[in-house]
Design a protein around this nucleic acid. Structure first.
Length: 878
RNA sequence: GGGUGUGUAGCUCAGUGGUAUGAGCACUACGUUGACAUCGUAGGGGUCGCUGGUUCGAUCCCAGCCACACCCACCA
């Protein structure tokens, strides 16, 4: 017996454990059906589940469960990401509590500590994914730092290096002074701030009283200036070109050069050029062969190339200004809106810094990645994201992959005594290569830099399947079927996976890429810890059940839009689960048992025929929409059917049958009920796996587990049977509504009321009374088939127009006006139809079906016109 | 500066070239009839951002405008 109340906590975890223990998430490798695979976007090993994961993983689980029920070989490959900076940060923070820094431990010990930490705390998010119901094959769980994946990383790295696609270069990079590492462009967040613009002047060499006026937001960088640029078209300043300015305080002469970078309209028209600390200036420096002077230490304090070694930039800025003021060179300071780059993890200002770093030749790798999308080998859903992807890929810059961290994949690079680079997959090979190169044994030192986390993530689609080994899984599941991810990760991950996969596998990593939005708070604000508007999915699950949260995510997921969190809506879907639970209880109480040999096509009673047809219609809608990644439409179809058709109408309509005397109708109805409930459980299962499984297990003894139950194949839908009752429902609804409008006493029979009505009104209700008779039949629910026709319902509406004014409910004049307007509009339409149909080119050239449709519409409009005229006629009497 | 998207009921959002059968929540009235008050029945509530154009007909297509959001690049 089912419990009286739906209480998800009673069974969700138990059911999940059963699936996992029974190996229900593992693909059936012996099956000859198609493969379907998804690799999970690996959450950070430090992560805890947030609503974004809940959305992302719910969508994947829906696809995975649906395809599993289609009988395919399904693999959902799970795992976590080592998340270089994030993880190192967490562990360092823990150490700091004990007063230890990573430098106290040393590299090796520190890495050991990270591994230990991961053992202990790294599994949180995977546990939480289980709670959500994610049907990943956990036996295949991977971690980007696993030996297998690390091997893949080394192999790709060496291959890229040997193909000349990875190189070392001294370049200006984004430097994070907190972690003291380079970061990629993507890891830099630009933030709007109101800063200051400083105006001051540099004296001109050997020309007393002559100055060049400079404007800058960062005066302290002047010690790295190696030129001042002006535009050659700048009439006011071009006479200075070729002369030298004297850099104050340090009294270093620097040339005044002509460069198009200097915009005469901006600032003072003259730009100080600091090639080692500004990306634009770096380019100017290259054009003019300027020296590069680095003025910063790795921790962003000034170095010995400045008068203020060891000082942080803010203090140095003040000092510089003071000095300039003392020298009488400072002119003014203004507020200035500007954008300052910050590290996305560290939150500190990112400094452009000149260092040796390693780069991937992204522009070259991007070519194939672009082509694959252009030629449709990989499709974005929604398609509009293609544009974003192309835009980024076509303007891609070399990707800085080296990080001066400890936690991550150490680069497979060894240096010989003279600095010669040996890039091999392991130390032995590097040594061998070095021996060969030098003709003798030499000592090698390994590069200490580690790789950007996204380097290993880029290989995820094939490294998790066993590459570089040839494995059955790689063979079966690569390329994967679809990648599901949020738009903010397109550049970080999707683009890199595409590049890496096209490079090494020569095939796309996934056939489709479904992009969803972000989960925001209920007012559309981005969720963030600092705003305090985050909602913890675990708490939501605790309160409403995982099914309710999942269904919410599915029902809200319309392609390409962000989702606003709404607790009331989640509660609504919990209520939906309750509704289904109670419907199942109703079935149980009425002995509606699933019958194995039941043929749903053999039902006789109109109500049963109707619900069977409706169930098939809903199935088709769910199927079609899931095939097209239309999650909300799919979820709504099953919701509407279950609540709107099955619970609201079917159950009410079969009560007289179940409580009645007709035994054959009764047994047919019981079986039909059970069949429909089973159907609901099947098509709802991908969305609400827990409650459906619980009901499946408790309403009958089953041959198959619901998780493996076959998804219904395409079915013929008896539309005639469906229409009969659909019309009846519309009819009943309209009559109920009418009753309310007429203020009938509660419980009064409409027929009784009509008996008491005046002759005149009854006269006008000829058609209406027909419907009342139909209603009477309906309530008995016999001989229903074919009794209620669209015409009857039409007449209800028509007659209502007349009836309502009678009772003073509707304003007569307004009603007349409305009808006149309708008549006008119909006349206009009729003109249009007539014109179109008398146009020879339309009649001759348009497809026959279109012309027929036009004629049908014309006929319909004519009919409507006469009805409206008739109504107007009648209304005229009142 | 470049790009993308959004503007529909009180709120959050679906949707469509043919009178908006819109959904959930909120609201109002009535109702504890034997699945369900985590419920039922009914109701109120919309100039579908503004202005033009195409069309017999536009909320939907096109153009312009207004407002908002996001992404990319830059600002000495």
């Amino acid at each position: 017996m089912l419990e009286k109340n739906y209480n998800p906590k009673d069974f969700e975890e138990k059911i999940y454990a059963d699936w996992e223990i029974s190996g229900d998430f593992k693909p059936d490798m012996r099956s000859d059906k198609d493969a379907f695979s998804i690799v999970i976007p690996p959450p950070n090993v430090t992560g805890v589940l947030h609503m974004g994961h809940a959305l992302n993983d719910t969508l994947q689980d829906i696809l995975v469960r649906y395809n599993r029920m289609l009988g395919k070989k399904v693999l959902w490959q799970p795992g976590t990401d080592h998340a270089g900076i994030a993880t190192q940060m967490v562990v360092e923070r823990n150490l700091a509590k004990e007063g230890i820094s990573r430098h106290d431990l040393g590299r090796e010990k520190f890495i050991e500590t990270v591994w230990k930490w991961r053992e202990k705390s790294g599994g949180t998010i995977c546990k939480q994914l289980r709670r959500l119901g994610a049907s990943c094959d956990w036996s295949r769980e991977r971690f980007t730092m696993d030996e297998g994946l690390s091997r893949a990383v080394r192999k790709i790295f060496v291959s890229l290096y040997k193909d000349g696609l990875i190189y070392k270069a001294k370049k200006l990079v984004n430097w994070d002074s907190k972690f003291m590492t380079a970061v990629s462009d993507l890891e830099v967040i630009q933030k709007e701030t109101v800063g200051k613009m400083y105006y001051y002047k540099y004296p001109i060499e050997r020309e007393k009283g002559e100055y060049i006026h400079i404007a800058t937001t960062r005066p302290e960088t002047m010690f790295g200036d190696t030129a001042v640029a002006v535009s050659k078209d700048n009439e006011k300043l071009k006479h200075l070109i070729g002369k030298n300015a004297i850099l104050p305080i340090v009294n270093r002469p620097i040339p005044i050069i002509a460069d198009e970078h200097a915009d005469p309209e901006k600032g003072t028209g003259a730009v100080k050029i600091t090639p080692a600390h500004d990306f634009n200036d770096f380019e100017v420096g290259k054009r003019h062969n300027l020296p590069l002077i680095n003025i910063l230490n790795p921790d962003a304090t000034l170095n010995e190339n400045t008068p203020f070694p060891g000082m942080d930039t803010q203090t140095a800025r003040k000092k510089t200004i003071e000095k300039l003021e003392e020298l009488g060179l400072m002119e003014r300071i203004e507020d200035h809106p500007m954008v300052i780059p910050y590290g996305d993890r560290s939150g500190v200002v990112i400094e452009p810094l000149l260092t040796d770093q390693w780069f991937v030749d992204a522009p070259t790798l991007a070519k194939e990645a672009i082509r694959a999308v252009e030629e449709g080998e990989m499709e974005f859903v929604p398609k509009s994201y293609e544009k974003t992807y192309f835009e980024w890929m076509r303007n891609i810059q070399p990707w800085c992959i080296s990080r001066q961290l400890w936690w991550g994949h150490q680069m497979p690079i060894w240096y010989g005594p003279d600095g010669t680079i040996f890039c091999e997959e392991n130390e032995e090979e590097a040594k061998a290569a070095a021996d060969k190169h030098y003709g003798k044994k030499v000592e090698l030192t390994r590069e200490t830099d580690v790789l950007d986390t996204w380097f290993s993530s880029g290989l995820w689609a094939f490294s998790t399947l066993g590459w570089p080994d040839k494995t059955e899984y790689l063979d079966t599941f690569y390329p994967t079927s679809v990648l599901v991810t949020a738009f903010d990760i397109i550049f970080f991950w999707v683009a890199r996976m595409m590049m890496m996969s096209m490079y090494k596998m020569k095939r796309v990593p996934f056939a489709k890429c479904y992009i969803h939005g972000l989960v925001r708070d209920e007012h559309g604000q981005k969720m963030s810890k600092s705003k305090g508007n985050t909602v913890d999915p675990m708490e939501t699950i605790e309160k409403y059940g995982a099914d309710a949260l999942r269904f919410f995510m599915a029902a809200m997921e319309t392609q390409g839009r962000d989702i606003n969190m709404s607790e009331s809506r989640i509660a609504g879907y919990r209520n939906f689960a309750t509704k289904l639970w109670n419907a199942a209880r109703f079935g149980e109480m009425n002995q509606c048992l699933s019958q194995p040999d039941f043929d749903e096509n053999s039902v006789k009673h109109p109500v049963n025929k109707w619900i069977v047809a409706k169930a098939k219609e809903a199935t088709k809608e769910v199927t079609d929409n899931l095939n097209n990644f239309r999650f909300s439409d799919a979820a709504n179809a099953v919701y509407q059917f279950t609540w709107g058709s099955f619970c609201d109408w079917y159950i009410e309509m079969i009560k007289p049958l179940l409580y009645g005397e007709d035994e054959s109708a009764k047994s047919e109805t019981r079986a039909a009920f059970a069949w429909v409930l089973d159907r609901i459980l099947v098509i709802l299962h991908p969305f609400m796996p827990f409650i459906t499984t619980e009901l499946w297990n408790n309403t009958a003894s089953r041959q198959v587990k619901l998780i493996h139950a076959p998804w219904p194949k395409e079915e013929k839908i008896d539309t005639a049977a469906m229409n009969d009752i659909d019309w009846a429902i519309e009819l009943i609804s309209s009559i109920r509504s009418l009753r309310a409008e007429m203020n009938l006493p509660a419980g009064a029979k409409l027929t009784a009321y009509l008996k008491g009505a005046s002759e005149t009104s009854l006269k006008n209700m000829h058609a209406f009374s027909n419907i009342i008779c139909s209603l009477a039949r309906l309530e008995k629910l016999d001989a229903l088939q074919g009794e209620v026709t669209p015409d009857m319902v039409q007449s209800v509406f028509r007659e209502a127009t007349v009836l309502l004014p009678l009772k003073g409910v509707v304003d007569f004049a307004a009603e007349r006006e409305r009808l006149r307007k309708e008549l006008d509009s119909l006349n206009k339409n009729l003109e249009g139809y007539a014109r179109k149909l008398s146009n020879p080119s339309f009649v001759e050239r348009a497809p026959a079906a279109v012309v027929a449709e036009e004629k049908r519409r014309q006929a319909e409009a004519m009919e409507n016109k006469s009805k409206v005229e008739e109504a107007l006629q009648r209304i005229a009497n009142f």
